[in-house]
Structure formats: structure tokens, C-alpha cells
């Protein structure tokens, strides 16, 4: 039996505890221990971005993060995106993804949303080229990316400088 460890962190704005295997990924913790399934497993190697979450305000691949490393940190998953004061942008992103047709099978979408939201937090007026670079770690097999990029650009343009 693997070593277990207790951690205490904030998940989607709510403080909580969890007991996790020390070699477990944050992705497995979220999906299996906690039961939040919006964060997806796509490759387990940080190559596809389907498992993107935000920790202490930056996006990362939860499949590469040790669950124990969540201790003391602010973790936001797709289920909690926009629950805080930055919710206007998250809600604008959601609308833009719908309006621009950025979703087909949808499996990459939660990770794409988490990354897009992080990008716009960092670079509110990012242009199409930097957005393409910004989502280079998120694979999508359905859309050809164009409508995803369009959606993110539109939200960036919609924000007053």
C-alpha cells in the first residue's frame, strides 16, 4: 500500500482536506478521490492539456502535478472557473465558446477553457498568434483550433483596455 498523506488546500474557493497517495497525481485526486470529473485524462504526460487546472493563479497540467503538492494552495478546476470576482471573463469565455462553435466532441474543452482563462488573465488583449502559442499545449482532434482561437480572441477584444 502506498504511503498516504493528508493535505489541506482550497478547491474552487472552498477549503478542504484530502488524504492522498504520495505518488498520486492531482488529476487522479480530483477525479477519483474527490469526484470532480470535469478535468479530463487525455495522456497523463502533459502533452495534451485536457487536464489543465489553475493553481495559485497559473495554469498547469494536473496529470504532472503531485497531489501532495496541492497542500496550502488555491486550486481551481473547470467546476469552479468563474466562481470568484473574475467571473465576468469566465462567463464571457463560456458564451464565446458557444457562439463561435469552439466545441465539437468537447473532451478537450474544459482544459481549453482553463488555459484560455489563464491566458486572458495574463494577457487580456492577446492577439490570435499569441493565443495560438498560448494553447499549443492543448490538443484538439475535432475543430482544427480555428474556432477556439476565434472565441478567445473575441473575449480579449471585448475587454476594455
Amino acid at each position: 500500500m502506498s504511503l498516504m498523506h493528508d493535505i489541506d488546500f482550497t478547491l474552487n474557493g472552498v477549503r478542504r482536506r484530502a488524504t492522498v497517495r504520495v505518488d498520486m497525481s492531482a488529476l487522479d485526486m480530483l477525479r477519483e478521490t474527490i469526484g470532480l470529473t470535469g478535468t479530463k485524462y487525455g495522456c497523463g504526460e502533459g502533452e495534451c492539456g485536457a487536464c489543465t487546472i489553475q493553481v495559485d493563479g497559473v495554469s498547469l497540467n494536473s496529470c504532472l502535478m503531485f497531489a501532495v503538492d496541492c497542500h496550502g494552495r488555491q486550486v481551481v478546476t473547470i467546476e469552479g472557473l468563474g466562481a470568484d470576482e473574475a467571473s465576468t471573463r469566465a462567463s464571457a469565455l463560456r458564451d464565446a465558446f458557444v457562439e463561435h462553435g469552439a466545441v465539437q466532441c468537447g473532451f478537450c474543452t474544459p482544459g481549453m477553457m482553463m488555459q484560455a482563462s489563464h491566458l486572458l488573465d495574463r494577457h487580456p488583449h492577446a492577439d490570435a498568434e499569441s493565443i495560438k502559442r498560448g494553447i499549443e499545449g492543448n490538443l484538439c482532434r475535432c475543430t482544427g483550433y480555428k474556432k477556439i482561437v476565434d472565441a478567445i480572441v473575441a473575449v480579449g477584444e471585448g475587454i476594455a483596455p
Binding site: G49, L60, N61, M65, G137, N138
Partner: peptide, 9 residues
């Protein structure tokens, strides 16, 4: 280097 998600960490 890698992707934004990896560069962040």
C-alpha cells in the same frame, strides 16, 4: 520550451 502549462511549473 514545452507548453505554457509546463513553463508555468
Amino acid at each position: 520550451f514545452a507548453s505554457d502549462q509546463i513553463r508555468n511549473v
